[in-house]
């Protein structure tokens, strides 16, 4: 897909919407649109996380494996949101598996390449890191609420 087309795809996501046109173009130049088949594992927990993805359509489940081999879905990532942020962290080890639970389209960014681009472009870095922070904070808020186990029996109205 052409960079311009990819930029418009990104513009439809909350993660990249409202970026300055130049920044969005720069980001689009680094990404590639990928189709992920239903059930495909995009990122494997505990392995090198190479790419950060922005979901365009479909759904990605982030799963942790539990002793005994059972997986637990911790959260699902929906259109507009990101997964695989470990790719731009220093250790780059995936802390969860990312599994497509339906046919999914995502814009994928090579973590090393994205990091280099951000290091060399302060304006782009400021914009992208802020959005990453929003995404992390949003997920942290969700996790806190899930920890409260609000719907457990006896903790609900009526």
């Amino acid at each position: 897909m052409e960079t311009e087309d990819l930029a418009s795809v990104l513009d439809a996501t909350w993660f990249a919407a409202d970026l300055a046109p130049q920044a969005r173009g720069r980001l689009a130049a680094l990404g590639r649109l990928e189709e992920v088949a239903d059930g495909a594992i995009v990122v494997q927990e505990g392995t090198l996380c190479e790419s950060l993805g922005v979901v365009v359509s479909g759904r990605i489940a982030l799963r942790l494996s539990l002793p005994g081999g059972e997986d637990r879905t911790i959260i699902t990532v929906h259109p507009g949101d990101i997964f695989g942020w470990s790719a731009i962290l220093p250790q780059r080890i995936a802390t969860a598996s990312a599994v497509a639970v339906m046919p999914t389209t995502a814009v994928m960014f090579d973590g090393a390449e994205l990091k280099r681009a951000l290091a060399g472009d302060a304006d782009l870095a400021a914009a992208i890191y802020e959005r990453l922070l929003v995404s992390v904070a949003r997920r942290l808020t969700a996790t806190r609420t899930q920890l409260l186990d609000l719907y457990r029996p006896g903790n609900e109205p009526w």
Binding site: D71, R72, T73, T76, H78, Q146
Partner: peptide, 23 residues
């Protein structure tokens, strides 16, 4: 719809209900 916790058999959304409309 969304659920707080689920096993791999659940292919629906997992998270908190506000994630369904906050964006």
């Amino acid at each position: 719809e969304i659920v707080d916790r689920a096993g791999p058999e659940w292919l629906g959304r997992v998270g908190i209900v506000t994630q369904l409309f906050d964006q």
